[in-house]
Amino acid sequence: MEQLLSEIVAKYNYWIYVVLMMIGFYAMIGKRNLVKKLLGMNIFQTAIILFYVSIGSKRGGGIPIVDKHAAMLHGVDATGVVNPLPHVLMLTAIVVSVSVTGVALAILIRIYRKYDTLEEDEILEKIGR
């Protein structure tokens, strides 16, 4: 128990992201409403984004914007700046998640127009399965 607790405290950030991801995952597979499923997917994406950003952090590292003149003269110390690569990847991932949400909402509007409901079982009933 003592060991488990120290394990949680040492990596509490990953534990939080895994819990967040579980919430999103449950919403995606357990809920019957299509909008709730979509919200679950968004929570899932948020967990992934936070996870990546936390991978890039360094203790005592500054923001990845450096003093240009000092950098030109002496170069930059890589341990003093947080890893900018996850930030770049997540910057694009956020915009992709926005566009995915947009397309999904458009399809949901179309589904609602055709079947007058967003509940999964009712749609399946109307399709005739």
Partner: peptide, 16 residues
């Protein structure tokens, strides 16, 4: 990005 965001809002907000 500006154009796509505005267009997404217009289309989703008014249902096309």
């Amino acid at each position: 990005v500006m154009s796509i965001m505005v267009s997404l809002f217009w289309d989703l907000g008014s249902g096309g």
